[in-house]
Design a protein around this nucleic acid. Structure first.
Lengths: 202, 202, 202, 202
DNA sequence: GCATAAGCGAGACGGTACGTCCTGTCTTATC
DNA sequence: GATAAGACAGGACGTACCGTCTCGCTTATGC
């Protein structure tokens, strides 16, 4: 792998660009944490970052995009789980991690972000892929391995199975009708694996 | 002991106009349908309803509340399914109805509504109960009957089971990573009933 | 001269509450004193007087009228001066009284009242007659007596003379470019009596 | 020592649009003429001037200030009289000019403006100086010259004399109890010069 | 002596304007 | 030649009063 050590092109009068970007994202993230989506206004971000509004508009077209970008920038991608020989145990571990992530304040921010954005905007898609579907994708790998190992039936619809596991987590995050915790994650996985069908079908 | 069946407080002053209320909700609903949440501004609603702004503020504290109220008011509650002797078939039928409801434009509105609102506002809770959890509650009755009839295991956690069924629908509605249709509803129910585990069920 | 003591038309229905009237005028006067004309809003008066708005509107058509009425009601008419054998001394005494009246807070209220009102409204005319021109009318009597006694020229235009005396008081009240005090009143009267013309006309 | 004639602060950012300023003042002046003070609302001015409300608020804090500024801006300062060798004749000519100015519609606007404004606001002071006291100041110069020439007594209090001449004009403008016209101006000046006292001047 | 009419408090109504905030664009002077 | 500063047109916000209108309730008079 080749590492480009900064080409350092001889630039006229734009030494500020990276610093400004960082300041903007940082200001936006702080505002988001302090006052939610509503507090992330272009004016507030500009003021706090010590930056002109046009500088922000040059990189993000509106406040939602910026808020999303800020949330993603401050996101540690690491829900990553190490894979062992027992994928179903890896899955259980990963679900607990996801629950942990959702339980923090970040969970609330994610919730707010989801419906606020234009559903079809480019950034919204990226956001969903990065923040929401990332764990599901990891889960997909685990399920596939479990099938290969014979731990799961080989006739299941993988996508349906994934939604049956990750959907409920998301459901409780957004609706909040029941607690979202490790116990739920465990019960969910157990029930999903075993099925609901009663005695008549052993 | 005499039971007064409604204290019915004396109500001083001019009563609120039900005509105005109706006009406001109607205007808000129309604007919502035409231009989404963003179009439901207090000013636009007031203008279209032929009503003063303070009249709106007297009943709803902000545009989101009003939009939610309008959506609920124009909502036909009828996901109601008739119950037969086979609750699992009733459940399948109901899931198809829910999918149908989510698939229309109303689905998009519901999606937008959810995250836009203050999560803990009173109206938001009512909204979630009426629009989101209503079907789930109906499902609960069906599942309970199924357990009584022995069609389902009697050791399942009912709440977990419900989320395992309704959560995925909601997941696809909001994230949109995969289609939300009858086929999905059917596969979902089938998989949930049967379980994912392999081996033991050759 | 026959004084008709009010034709007293036979009124049906509940008579207007004098208690309410008093409460309204009192509330208006207090508000006027506390916050000037701007504070005398119908709503504030109604709230403070413990009275419904229609009760106010039944007697006064707008806030300015009410404020004027309140100011007049709380006005002691007594600039009245006793008349002695030397009308010019009576006049000097009266001018001092007028100055005293204008110097208090009431002076400021009068000032505000004058231009705020519709110039040609009925109440504004009454106000001007009662509050502004009353003293001038008294002065007219005094000047006439002085002319009869030979203390003043008999070829002067009385109205012009009156405006030459009372106008400057009013001028300083409203514009405030120079102090309005007894010294001014004295100098004014002296100068007016003596004239400005120099040596050429002894 | 070097005297910098105007530090001329660096003025960061986009300068205020003089076109906008002109449009605002023009719109305000028109509205003032059409409907009086009450018609000069920020919204109406903004709409007519094709300008955002904040642009107005950036320069004037409320409608009264704006109306005053508009009236002053559209005011031709020209009551200025040319000075001849006979200052008392100059004075007579100037009084006729002032009367002319007060008699037009502008007179009514001035009247309304005076009491409507916060008495002690900065703009109100400027207004009084520019609109009301300007003529009086010119008169002061004329009187001084007349005294030097021996046409007036040299023992008069100049300020009192000025108020004795200009106060009555103002009095009739605001109270309207008697007509304000050239005849009055002439009689006023004559009476003031000659004095009111009888007897001593047979 | 009881009906009737008007006044009463309360408060909602359709409106208008307020003054603030934010948007997204633009125009400067600065670095 | 990109930046920060900040003015611009526009438009929604939520509030304050306006003057009018219902309410349900007194309170006098007059039939």
């Amino acid at each position: 792998m080749i590492v480009r050590v900064k080409p350092e092109k001889p630039k006229r009068g734009r030494p500020r660009s990276i610093a400004a970007r960082r300041a903007i994202l940082s200001a936006a993230a702080n505002l988001l944490e302090e006052g939610g989506m509503g507090a992330v206004t272009m004016e507030a971000v500009a003021a706090r970052a010590g930056v002109g509004k046009p500088t922000i508009y040059r990189s993000w077209t509106n406040a939602q995009e910026l808020a999303m970008a800020a949330l993603m920038a401050s996101d540690n991608p690491g829900t990553q789980v190490r894979q062992t020989a027992v994928p179903l145990e890896d899955l259980a571990r990963q679900l607990r991690k996801v629950v942990g992530k959702f339980t923090t304040k970040r969970g609330g921010q994610i919730r707010l972000m989801l419906a606020a954005a234009e559903q079809d905007s480019e950034i919204a898609k990226v956001f969903r892929n990065r923040v929401i579907l990332q764990s599901r994708d990891e889960g997909k790998t685990l399920l596939q391995r479990a099938i290969e190992l014979g731990s799961l039936r080989d006739d299941i619809d993988l996508e349906v199975a994934l939604d049956m596991i990750y959907g409920p987590l998301f459901y409780r995050l957004l609706i909040g009708h029941k607690p979202l915790n490790d116990a739920f994650a465990k019960a969910l996985l157990t029930t999903a694996l075993r099925g609901l069908r009663g005695g008549a079908h052993p």
